[in-house]
Amino acid sequence: MFEARLTQSAILKKVLDAVKDLLSEATFECSDSGIQVQAMDNAHVSLVSLNLRSDGFDKYRCDRNLSMGMSISCMSKILRCAGAEDTVTLRAWDSPESIVFIFESPNKDKLAEYEMKLINMDQEHLGIPETSYSCVVKMPSAEFTRICRDLSQFGESITFACTKEGIKFSASGDYGSANIKLAQTADADNEEEAIIVNMQEPVKLTFSCRYLNCFVKAGPLCNQVQLSMSDDVPLVCEYKIGDIGHIRYYLAPKIDD
């Protein structure tokens, strides 16, 4: 059988909020090491890679590897039924046709069970090579959210230009243009507020606002976001999920026609 328990259902709620605008359905691969999801949006422009390690769960048991196709919108609806302080347990039997979500209140006086049918899915798996990136920038996730939102008003895409001094985000359109420069923070006293630039080569890349504004929905998961960039390759936008894992978004750049 498969059973995974998290004392804080809020973590799983936030994870669903972070993927539901990009994915309608996804396969959850469950094994001894944890739960993994790799799924592209319908247009194959972005990819979500979610990793939740088994040791991050409060209880975890997976007797045999399972691939469970799930409707993200249905899962999201179910998780909205969990109280903020509830514990969540996911349970499935071997060769399952459904998965059960069990929510338990902190004082254990309320127990709610929701069963969700699994779906058969053809899945396309992409081999993503381990790459060293020309620029890796760490910055507060709230700042990144704000920049994507603000610059989206000016155009359909945002250009990221990174040098050793910092990173510049810019957008332009019919009404005008805007750019925001962030300098690397001199002292990293406050880790959550730090902007750290690790640059081997300067990069300049352009990305669609629509996808970036989906990625920033992961902001509530982590105070910092990490952007990994090389010229003419997909962006990696990573948010840590506490001590349990991470969510990575890959986004194909806009390239010269």
Partner: peptide
Amino acid sequence: KKKQSTLTDFFKKS
């Protein structure tokens, strides 16, 4: 003018 690329331009299907 820039056009949107897709991930399958960069990553191989496995």
